[in-house]
Amino acid sequence: MGRISTLAGIVVVALFAATAAYANENTCPGDPGYAAETRVVTVPTTGGPAYGNMQYPQTVPLGPKEVVLTFDDGPDPESTLRILDTLDRHCVKATFFMVGYYAARHPEIVREVAARGHIIGTHTWLHPNSLRSYSLAQAQREIRRGFEAVEAALASAPAEDRQRLAPFFRFPGLNDSAALIRWLGERHVATFSCEFGADDWKPIGSAEVRRRAIRNIASVGRGILILHDTKPRTADMLSSFIVTMREQGYSFVQLAPEPESRIRAAAVSDALIGAVEPLAVADIRPATAVAEPSLEPDAALH
């Protein structure tokens, strides 16, 4: 009888140890009350759908109190890395819409974003505040060069990381045009707007950015949030924001393209994005005469 009791005790201890090990593997080390993995929602890109109820009839399929974190305008050598560290600490994955000019200047940060498991979309080459004021050909060149710059930055990365460049695009200032959305759609590139912003592009403090983000999310309940990884104020408030949102019952979701989206987008004639294979892309660093991008939108995101 004593031997049976001893064996039972050993089994219980082993089961407890296995359960604890499983829990540790699936719990965020920096935020132990939450999962180590961000839920991934895949979205179609075929035909170039436009997502985000601030502008479009449809948005991404989220449950109650689910929020997608997106960051525009980087990569930035200071703020982007701080934001990546905060996201790692809280085990949150996001989507970064990158400006091609900065991707060409800081390709190592583009690779770092991908290596840490985030999805990358593009945001033009020079972030013109309104592509509507460009000729169609000029606007198309802006968009194309943005994709080329990010692909070039990822050319030396492992295939898994190169795959994180998705056929996702966001218009600077959300100033879209029907003609460009159709053109993107013909290349199976999806357009992303949002449900809410936090006005972090304005000269306000980090506490106010946090307050506006929480207020705007609460007014809608779920959706895509636009932030900017070029803003120190955003990096300053991000950890507290994530903690507060979780305390209020919200969770974070990462967007990814449906399987085969990249292959489909790369297969069309005059594609904007290539297949995941070694790229022979010319050096597209900007000439010294190129002006710095303008990163401020024309109007606030309410």
Results as ranks from 00 to 15, higher is better:
residue 22 Y to P: 11
residue 37 E to Q: 12
residue 97 F to C: 01
residue 279 L to W: 13
residue 173 G to L: 08
residue 245 M to F: 04
residue 116 R to A: 04
residue 134 Y to W: 12
residue 257 P to F: 00
residue 191 T to S: 11
residue 281 V to W: 10
residue 247 E to N: 11
residue 127 H to V: 00
residue 32 P to Q: 06
residue 174 L to A: 13
residue 34 Y to G: 04
residue 163 Q to H: 13
residue 77 P to G: 05
residue 93 K to M: 05
residue 232 P to A: 07
residue 131 L to F: 03
residue 4 I to C: 07
residue 32 P to W: 09
residue 1 M to N: 10
residue 259 P to W: 08
residue 22 Y to I: 13
residue 302 H to N: 15
residue 72 D to S: 05
residue 33 G to I: 08
residue 115 A to D: 11
residue 195 E to R: 05
residue 294 S to M: 14
residue 236 D to M: 07
residue 107 P to M: 10
residue 57 P to M: 08
residue 114 A to P: 05
residue 21 A to E: 15
residue 278 P to D: 04
residue 85 D to Q: 13
residue 299 A to Y: 14
residue 250 Y to V: 00
residue 295 L to D: 02
residue 31 D to A: 09
residue 40 V to T: 12
residue 177 S to G: 08
residue 238 L to A: 05
residue 203 P to E: 05
residue 232 P to C: 03
residue 239 S to H: 12
residue 45 T to I: 06
residue 264 R to M: 09
residue 166 A to G: 01
residue 263 I to K: 14
residue 147 F to P: 02
residue 189 V to E: 00
residue 117 G to T: 04
residue 70 T to Q: 03
residue 65 K to R: 13
residue 5 S to L: 15
residue 189 V to T: 04
residue 42 T to G: 00
residue 118 H to M: 05
residue 244 T to K: 15
residue 173 G to P: 06
residue 16 F to S: 15
residue 50 A to K: 12
residue 75 P to R: 06
residue 172 P to L: 09
residue 225 L to W: 09
residue 227 L to M: 14
residue 256 A to F: 03
residue 1 M to C: 04
residue 161 D to I: 00
residue 171 F to P: 00
residue 157 A to F: 03
residue 264 R to V: 06
residue 95 T to D: 02
residue 260 E to I: 07
